[in-house]
Design a protein around this nucleic acid. Structure first.
Length: 579
DNA sequence: GCCGTTTTCGGCCCGACTGTTTTCAGTCG
């Protein structure tokens, strides 16, 4: 039974929901949810870890949950879950996800009104049957009907890709920070941490008078409904279904608030523990000494970390993946920044499925401060992408050389390919052709659903080819739409290390592949990482920032990333790689 | 259910907002 990390995480998430409806101890419920979160973010395949007997090394996974994972992987079933499912109808768990319905109400609807599905809940609400239940007035019923509508709209997937949420958040923030009386503004939450998908948007601004800011926020054109409207916090749902929370606060409390609302929850819990050890209680407003001394305000996040005796922790790594311990030891690495990037090693032109010429892409890259780029159009195996055969590849090389000369040293333009790793494992170009290229990316686009052994073997073949420099978007995942290929990443990483081949963080927010947990492990093994835009148009070159966020989440410093290397070092590496 | 250079037992975050139960419970983040 081939359950993925994500499927196992979702099952434990659901177990948490069921236990909550049953009214179980909240800490036991949270234990399942924390385990689910750790599993979702864990950088290794649970099937492998289970065989090694190392499940309990996963944060928040103890003996009991480890045994449940083993049972799931061995039998494809979980007795504990089956028992719960026999007690709590599946529809009641769905009802729990309606806005305005928590465990108490879900249980009440079920046991007092016999409601066991969203459809029954909606019918009961419309028929006025809910009003008879305790605590249910007109507004509560209306809210539940709205909640059902909202849930229907985003039923397929409740999370929004970072590539959608970040620009939306920036647009709203720029409206708010332009208002009179507003000082600072920031996007907090999981967007600030660069997570690939976002639950909702958290915005913070400083202002002495919150009311006018809240009024503008809740009456913007793209507001579908106002979920809450108070003096310090308001929430809206946008027409596209995205929920946005705004908090307005005084400037002197900026540091604690920004930290609090940036999360992650797990990071913050540890910070509060450290504060308590120092006799301080930490919340979004201040550090408050337990001995009754006046509260300590932190206007900057840096002040807060300093007060706690910690090195500053960049938001992207606040996931409780060891950053607190590193900060205590003063060992937070200097994370890569966009300013470190001098090259883009993967992009397309009109020769295959790109929208701009080689010259136009070169000019655009120069305008963005790149020192060198590699033109890597698709190979002929990618027929729908108008992939190049050998003849066209060599003709393209002549044009690349000409453009490179025309750019007159402003930027170097190199010639490569994004070569198809075919479904049968063979590569699209023979070695003598690859030898003529400056840089070779090999990628999976087809056969992603092949069995683990088969698809892994294809990637290993590509890695072992002496001319292949980089595996592009290694897992072939699409954020939200598609899980990646069932690759044996342990084997892939070991072979990449052995052959000196780089692995990509594809910066396109639809991909973000490798994702942070995998990229971190690869880099720790000493595998070079490339962060490339895979741009098919000029504007896609600006997607680099999503790759940077992902790389920072992976704890990468500049030297671990090929795109930061000067051209000489890059050419040395390409030339010497497999020798 | 997990966790632990104070602990293998006893903790585990708590404040804001809303609606309705006129003093608070439920939900959310």
């Amino acid at each position: 039974m081939a359950l993925s990390n994500r499927e196992i995480a979702e099952l434990f998430e659901r177990i948490g929901d069921m236990l909550e409806i049953k009214g179980e101890n909240i800490h036991r419920i949270l234990a399942y949810r924390r385990a689910a979160e750790s599993i979702r973010e864990f950088g290794r395949d649970l099937r492998v870890v289970s065989k090694e007997g190392g499940l309990e090394a996963i944060p928040n996974v103890g003996k009991v949950i480890a045994e449940k994972i083993d049972e799931l992987l061995e039998t494809g079933q979980l007795t504990f879950y089956e028992k719960l499912a026999a007690e709590v109808p599946a529809g009641v768990v769905d009802i729990l996800h309606v806005n305005g319905v928590g465990p108490k109400k879900a249980k009440m609807f079920w046991q007092d009104a016999g409601i066991t599905s969203l459809e029954e809940l909606e019918a009961a609400a419309r028929a006025g049957k809910l009003n008879n239940l305790p605590g249910m007035g007109e507004k509560s019923v209306a809210r539940i009907l709205e909640g059902i509508e909202s849930l229907k709209r985003r039923s397929a997937e409740t999370r929004t890709p970072l590539g959608v949420a970040l620009p939306a958040a920036e647009a709203i923030l720029s409206v708010l920070t332009a208002l009179p009386g507003v000082g600072r503004g920031a996007i907090a939450g999981s967007i600030r941490r660069g997570k690939p998908t976002i639950g909702d948007v958290d915005l913070l601004v400083t202002a002495d008078d919150a009311a006018p800011v809240m009024d503008v926020f809740t009456s913007m054109d793209n507001v579908a409904r106002v979920l809450g409207h108070g003096p310090t916090k308001s929430s809206i749902e946008l027409l596209n279904g995205l929920q946005v929370d705004l908090r307005v606060l005084p400037a002197e409390r900026w540091g604690t608030a920004l930290n609090y609302f940036s999360g992650s929850k797990e990071h913050n819990v540890k910070l509060r523990r450290i504060a308590l050890d120092k006799g301080l209680s930490l919340n979004e407003w201040a550090l408050t000494p337990e001995n009754g001394d006046p509260e300590i305000l932190c206007a900057e996040e840096e002040d807060l970390y300093a007060r706690l005796g910690l090195q500053y922790v960049p938001p992207e790594i606040r996931e409780d993946w060891g950053e607190i311990e590193a900060a205590q030891a003063g060992k937070i690495p200097a994370l890569l920044t966009e300013a470190d990037i001098v090259a883009d090693l993967h992009m397309h032109t009109t020769w295959s499925d790109g929208r701009f010429s080689i010259r136009e892409m070169a000019e655009a890259a120069y305008a963005r401060g790149r020192k060198y780029i590699v033109i890597t159009d698709h190979s002929h195996g990618a027929t729908i992408a108008n992939g190049l055969n050998v003849e066209r590849l060599l003709a393209q090389q002549a044009e690349v050389r000409r453009v490179d000369a025309e750019m007159n040293g402003k930027i170097r333009v190199l010639h490569g390919t994004e070569m198809e790793i075919r479904a049968d494992g063979s590569l699209d170009f023979p070695d003598e052709i690859l030898a003529q290229l400056d840089f070779v990316v090999a990628s999976l686009h087809v056969g992603l659903r092949q069995p683990r052994e088969q698809v892994t073997q294809r990637v290993l073949n590509a890695l072992r080819n002496p001319h292949v420099d980089l595996i592009g978007h290694p897992r072939g995942q699409l954020i939200i739409e598609r899980e990646g290929a069932d690759l044996d990443l342990d084997a892939v990483f070991a072979t990449a290390k052995e052959t000196g081949t780089a692995l990509e963080i594809n910066a396109n927010p639809a991909r973000l592949d490798l994702e942070a947990s995998y990229a971190r492990r690869a880099a720790e093994m000493g595998i070079p990482i490339c962060i490339d835009t895979d741009a098919h148009s000029i504007d896609q070159m600006d997607l680099l920032r999503f790759g940077i966020l992902t790389a920072r989440r992976a704890w990468l410093s500049a030297d671990q990333v090929v795109n930061t290397w000067p051209l000489d070092k890059f050419l040395d590496w390409v030339g010497n790689k497999h020798v």
